[in-house]
């Protein structure tokens, strides 16, 4: 009994690492550009399908392909912000939400046309099956590595934002874009950089997801919701909080899944809503 519960918690924590990866980019775009990208989940799924195609053609490991694609992911994020999203800046929340909403529908249906509705999964090789015995429970090596990758990515992003000059500029624009513009720190040039970084986190999340779980063109929204809940749970502006948020979501899901598949999602949402009632600012809000 205790063992089962312990096992559920450990596996939940590990899958929380994957959710944190989904959520990091959303946390950044919320924190810096102050908008919710409705297409966030769909863009991750889009990257997964790109990996699917490229690994198919090249026959390489998806992780290697993802590594090579990192600059492309940055570029896509940059282009998206520079040429599309930037046009809605300063006009309130409605335009940006609706533009990303439209994007979400376009990506979902575009993938449906291109790849059909079937579920897919990428093969990560032998590592997928490897397991470590930790006391009474088995821990998959792959989930553990994903969790560590999430931790490393957060530490890296934290260092990027808080230790580099460009990071300070991004935070300055996040603080007050109008003030930045007044002193010549053009916010319109900073936002695309931030979105490029978001693109990188999306690609990392996509590569980890596509080896871990099944995906199909329609799953973007559920990834968006999980990411969103992790961000709000953790508290806005706190990347480590986002990790904790992801972990809570993962553990809640794992307990719910003991009943059935819809309880898995229901438990996730309920934990989120309860937390929202008692701590709307999130657990680790940087006020």
């Amino acid at each position: 009994m205790v063992e089962t519960i312990l096992n559920l918690i450990v596996q939940g924590v590990l899958i929380g690492g994957l959710y944190a990866l989904f959520a990091l980019g959303l946390s950044l775009s919320l924190g810096v550009m102050r908008f919710v990208n409705i297409a966030h989940g769909d863009m991750i799924v889009l990257f997964s399908f790109v990996l699917l195609s490229l690994t198919g053609v090249l026959g390489w490991s998806p992780f290697l392909v993802a590594l090579i694609l990192l600059p492309v992911a940055f570029g896509l994020g940059w282009l998206l912000q520079r040429f599309l999203l930037q046009r809605t800046v300063g006009k309130g929340i409605l335009p940006i939400l609706l533009v990303t909403f439209g994007l979400s529908i376009i990506i979902q249906n575009g993938l449906l046309e291109a790849y059909g509705p079937n579920t897919r999964k990428l093969s990560g090789g032998a590592i997928e099956l490897a397991a470590l015995r930790l006391g009474p429970i088995d821990v998959g090596v792959y989930p553990l590595l994903v969790f560590l990758l999430a931790v490393a990515l957060i530490a890296g992003l934290d260092a990027f934002l808080y230790r580099t000059a460009i990071g300070a500029r991004i935070r300055a624009v996040a603080d007050d874009p109008a003030a930045a513009d007044l002193i010549g720190l053009t916010s319109a040039r900073i936002y695309p950089v931030a979105m490029g970084v978001v693109g990188i986190t999306m690609l990392v999340a996509a590569s980890c997801m596509s080896v871990w779980t099944n995906f199909d063109p329609s799953i973007g929204p559920s990834r968006l919701l999980a990411a969103f809940e992790a961000v709000v749970l953790g508290g806005l502006g706190s990347l480590w909080g986002t990790l904790i948020g992801g972990v809570i979501i993962g553990v809640a899901q794992n307990f719910g899944s003991q009943i059935d598949a819809s309880w898995q999602i229901l438990a996730q949402h309920l934990v989120f809503l309860v937390a929202l009632v008692f701590r709307p600012q999130g657990l680790f809000a940087r006020s």
């Binding site: 919320l30 102050r34 908008f35 919710v36 409705i38 929340i93 940006i96 939400l97 929204p221 968006l224 919701l225 969103f228 809940e229 709000v232 819809s262 999602i265 229901l266 949402h269 309920l270 989120f272 809503l273 929202l276 009632v277 709307p280």
Partner: peptide
Amino acid sequence: AVIFRLRTAYLAVGTWVAADVLMLIAGK
């Protein structure tokens, strides 16, 4: 009462979560 704890952009996703919950409960 619950989702209005979220503001503006967050509220949009909040309504989505709420609808998802209602749908899942309906299935139960």
